[in-house]
């Protein structure tokens, strides 16, 4: 049974409980009073299939699939407008990140969702050396939808890349290794342990 199916079984008909137990800051969802200030404050609001206010109501209404397979949460730019304006002080930005992460963990993210892909590339990139390698991240971004598409994107951004290089803000030598933390062994041990503890915490709530 997949993790997704296990969660469906466990929380049958109570998606709100599932969110409260499994989504970062999910315990706040029930506090939403549906005023809509978050939706009206979002800079990319017009691109959300379901703006935050709607997502909160859908969670309470048990619309599990519609919420978790939505591209909505992935439209969050982390501008924190909704957080500072919410009259009930819900940590909306964090809830959206939490929902996005949960959807990813369950394998429910829509295919080719660009921000989901980029965000994962970013994480994988920083976990390698402890610091972001901008050049490799940029290359991975260009080619994240395959080689043919990548060449097109790279061509479109060629001038931009040249500008960055000319002004010393991009270093082609980064491809050979680049910046890294010195105690890389220690860094990896710390992060491995953190992941184990995270997994144990998840298992407690899981099926």
């Amino acid at each position: 049974m997949s993790t997704n199916q296990a969660m469906v079984e466990k929380y049958r008909n109570n998606f709100l409980k599932e969110v409260e137990a499994n989504v970062e800051e999910g315990e706040w969802v029930k506090m939403c009073m549906q005023c809509g200030v978050c939706s009206g404050s979002c800079p990319l609001g017009k691109f959300w299939d379901h703006p935050p206010q709607e997502i909160f109501m859908m969670i309470r209404a048990g619309k599990r699939d519609e919420v978790l397979t939505s591209s909505s949460m992935w439209m969050c730019t982390s501008c924190y407008n909704c957080i500072v304006r919410c009259p009930r002080e819900l940590p909306i930005t964090h809830i959206m990140h939490g929902l996005a992460h949960y959807a990813k963990r369950l394998g429910l993210v829509p295919q080719n969702q660009p921000t989901a892909k980029f965000a994962q590339l970013f994480w994988d990139n920083l976990m390698k050396k402890g610091r972001v390698n901008e050049l490799k991240l940029g290359m991975a971004l260009y080619f994240m939808n395959g080689f043919g598409e990548g060449v097109k994107v790279a061509m479109k951004n060629q001038k931009l890349g040249m500008n960055m290089m000319k002004t010393g803000r991009m270093n082609p030598m980064e491809i050979l290794g680049g910046h890294a933390v010195k105690d890389l062994g220690g860094f990896h041990k710390v992060m491995k342990k953190a992941q184990e503890l995270e997994d144990a915490r998840i298992a407690k709530h899981g099926a």
């Binding site: 982390s78 990140h97 992460h101 921000t115 965000a119 976990m127």
Partner: peptide, 8 residues
């Protein structure tokens, strides 16, 4: 943007 790959 670390939230996709990185849990809490």
């Amino acid at each position: 943007i670390g939230y996709a790959g990185g849990g809490e």
